[in-house]
């Protein structure tokens, strides 16, 4: 009888502990900001995700050339006439965006606020 009670207590406490652990893990991961990533969309659709921490070049369908250098992303070349995206300063802060309107390309740093205005 006594051992049954002990087993019950053991079972109850281990389930409670597991519940607490899972809850805690959920709470922690929900509030952890994603690592800073450069998200590229083309015509509103996801096109590529690149880590901001790694120097890289990405040719976006011949429309724009995206470069990541020293933790900053910028559009190095674009085929459009107005070149607004090329003149845009490099971005690195979560939420910052560079848009190439004629190419319908958006480059965004993930994490951070929902919008930057």
């Amino acid at each position: 009888m006594r051992s049954r009670l002990r087993n019950d207590i053991l079972l109850i406490s281990s389930i409670a502990l597991a519940a607490a652990l899972i809850f805690a893990a959920g709470a922690i991961f929900r509030h952890t900001k994603k690592g800073e990533t450069v998200e590229v969309t083309l015509g509103g659709e996801h096109y590529a995700s690149l880590p901001l921490s790694q120097d890289a070049e990405l040719d976006i369908e011949g429309l724009c050339l995206l470069k990541i250098e020293n933790g900053e992303a910028y559009v190095a070349e674009a085929v459009c006439r107005n070149q607004i995206c090329v003149r845009h300063r490099p971005i690195s802060a979560p939420g910052e965006v560079i848009i190439c309107l004629p190419g319908r390309v958006a480059v965004r740093i993930s994490g951070g606020p929902d919008f930057v205005v």
Partner: peptide
């Protein structure tokens, strides 16, 4: 998760 967060851009880059 709560209210909407809107970053205000700094004119010289960043938030």
């Amino acid at each position: 998760t709560g209210m909407w967060e809107i970053g205000i851009a700094s004119p010289d880059g960043g938030i």
